[in-house]
Design a protein around this nucleic acid. Sequence first.
DNA 1: CATGAATGAGCTTTCATTCAT
DNA 2: CATGAATGAAAGCTCATTCAT
Lengths: 225, 225, 225, 225
Amino acid sequence: MTASTANLPPPTFAEGLPGGRPSRQRLSPPLRMAQILDAALAVFHEKGFAASRIDDIALRAGLSKGGVYAHFDSKEEIFEALIDRSLTMPAGLDEAALAPGQMVTVDLLVERVIDPVYRLLARPETAMTLRLVVADGRQVQALVERWQRAVLDPFASAVERLVRRAVRQGSLGKGALTASPWLLMAPIAQVVLWQLMHGQGEGAPVTLEQQRRSHIALLREALAP
Amino acid sequence: MTASTANLPPPTFAEGLPGGRPSRQRLSPPLRMAQILDAALAVFHEKGFAASRIDDIALRAGLSKGGVYAHFDSKEEIFEALIDRSLTMPAGLDEAALAPGQMVTVDLLVERVIDPVYRLLARPETAMTLRLVVADGRQVQALVERWQRAVLDPFASAVERLVRRAVRQGSLGKGALTASPWLLMAPIAQVVLWQLMHGQGEGAPVTLEQQRRSHIALLREALAP
Amino acid sequence: MTASTANLPPPTFAEGLPGGRPSRQRLSPPLRMAQILDAALAVFHEKGFAASRIDDIALRAGLSKGGVYAHFDSKEEIFEALIDRSLTMPAGLDEAALAPGQMVTVDLLVERVIDPVYRLLARPETAMTLRLVVADGRQVQALVERWQRAVLDPFASAVERLVRRAVRQGSLGKGALTASPWLLMAPIAQVVLWQLMHGQGEGAPVTLEQQRRSHIALLREALAP
Amino acid sequence: MTASTANLPPPTFAEGLPGGRPSRQRLSPPLRMAQILDAALAVFHEKGFAASRIDDIALRAGLSKGGVYAHFDSKEEIFEALIDRSLTMPAGLDEAALAPGQMVTVDLLVERVIDPVYRLLARPETAMTLRLVVADGRQVQALVERWQRAVLDPFASAVERLVRRAVRQGSLGKGALTASPWLLMAPIAQVVLWQLMHGQGEGAPVTLEQQRRSHIALLREALAP
DNA sequence: CATGAATGAGCTTTCATTCAT
DNA sequence: CATGAATGAAAGCTCATTCAT
């Protein structure tokens, strides 16, 4: 797991006030970079890349503008580092998908593919990163494509391979879903889209959990042998 | 339909040439505004709201910066007008959803709901607007919500009503899809997501048409009585 | 001659004061550019390229920082335009040096070569530009070389040709100066060097006029047939 | 002579390799300061005072930014120390000028005045310092004047005294050069100017040695009794 | 002494907006 | 209405300087 900000000591009272002695905390670069990236994710997510000011990121990360530039050469580099960090993040997926020689049932599919993705979507970090990629990816298209190739594509083909094997094994019935395995994930696209437009869980007409249950119900129905 | 640029007089010879000075004609305000909105949509879509310059929009609309300000008071006002315009745009949908008293079959659903949406998605304008709303909606949240209430929600409940009626009529079987009618549209979310990340049809692994067929196949299977 | 600032109306009293209505004078681009270049020359000369702020140039040119950027894309572009402008300036020299078929005497040399150069050196603009080229030329080496090739080199060889012809004609005696014609201009290098270090005429131990007379005296002596 | 870098212990093996971390040795202050000044001279010469970064100087001197500040309080102080160091530097000159009671001939003039200066000009350090003084002297005018008073003026009057004595002795003829003794050095100004604009010896049309010979030839001719 | 993270003032550049023409 | 020079408020970035380690 990446270095994170979670268990840092909270800033003292004085530091929080304007004019309070800035304390000039010297952190190790990896720690600082993690802090900055955390801050950047939040700010980018809130305002979008172009409208985000380095000052905002710096403030949120607890240092000064110049301090940010001691660790990243430009705003764009921060963006790239952010995407890069999320590149390795959903590590659980592809290894999990590379299932052993056992029987591939709907249950297995749910446990190894569907559930992990919903768990991922429940994390604020994931939603934020997705929003970043979609909203501002155009400006840094190369990165988005790298992300796609490194994360999305492998995941998609892993799912496809799983399904084909299951059909061969007879544990899943032939039908529209097994003919076009990518449709299996469609309800997840709905969730993502919703999150993109509204942020996480704010007054969604359908809970993430409800959506997950409906999704699984659909799968059981449509994939029954 | 709103005033559009479609049936404008063709550009004069000079304008057609690269480097040819654009119009400087005094057009009727509605026409000019339509031109400007068209240009703004394209530019916003390409660079995002914050990174778009009024100059770009003006250039693309064939007039100068000052000219734009003769019609809109601010950049944000252009954005709002853009969303407003798209509020009435997807004309095909609501009429379709207001189905008659007749029997609701899968075929009807496809013809009145699914197909119109795919037709909409095939239009560049739709993709652009969607991208705008998702990428830059946060800044003008109120507008996005208005759009949601005016377009998405009515459409969603229309579909829901259709499905419930069909189930009552026995023309659709009970199942996961009829229990959670919004799942009906899930594959469309997939298409939209893809378009958001890559623009229209550039090297998509699956054609819009393929996706539509798979989608319909799934519906026939899962909705069969 | 280039557009210059010389006969512009002086700024009104109010404009000179802070807070005075900025008047938003709209000048034609060539006029403004000349103003800006004049200002830039003064400022660069005073502080050097790197230490000069666009604000200074703008203030001196009578507009705002942003206004400068409406005419030049960057500070460096101003520098280049400045050198370019002085590139054509000493036009009188090389044509003059291309003397007719007549006898080349010391008097002619003085009248056609030495005097024009001293007249040039008496102009503040020349001194400033020279200082710029020497002090900050390293950063924009290509420009300096262009200047050298376009101005200095042609002048030097013109002088050389003149002297050789004179020696052939017998109107100048053979000696160290005619063997190495570039030495003819050496005292001028002294003047330039002095100006580089002190600016024009501020407490120079020797007047420009004195230096000129001594220079000519030396030439008469050393070039006598 | 001031402490210099010349006879430092050779760098350790690792330092000699590209990427090898530099010293981090604790050197004696005078040595360190000499290193830093050497580095500063090179950097200032290359980029000018304003465009030079302390980081560059530190890197070149083999320590870190903070290390530089352990020895100098500010960038300007480095500059001043640099000029100060060059104040005593041209040792050859003043002693030479303090000629004995003997006969002052052209040969003596050459040997005691002209040649030492050309030897000085052949040293990279001299060229660099001159460039510094000319290019950035304006910012630290006081220093330049000090340099002038301490080095140039004494040298100039020494030369003048020499010449006057020689004329009185009859060993030099009366003429333009003895009337205006400063003209004696004019060709040297040419060399300096050239070095200022191009750096040392890069593709100069005339060698330093050639220039020296021509210079001396001219002197013999013009100073002959 | 040396290091290098951090500060903060200052600079270049951009751009929405205004307005004289 | 249209133009485009001009304004002015940011915003990105740099770098001399400080100081905890």
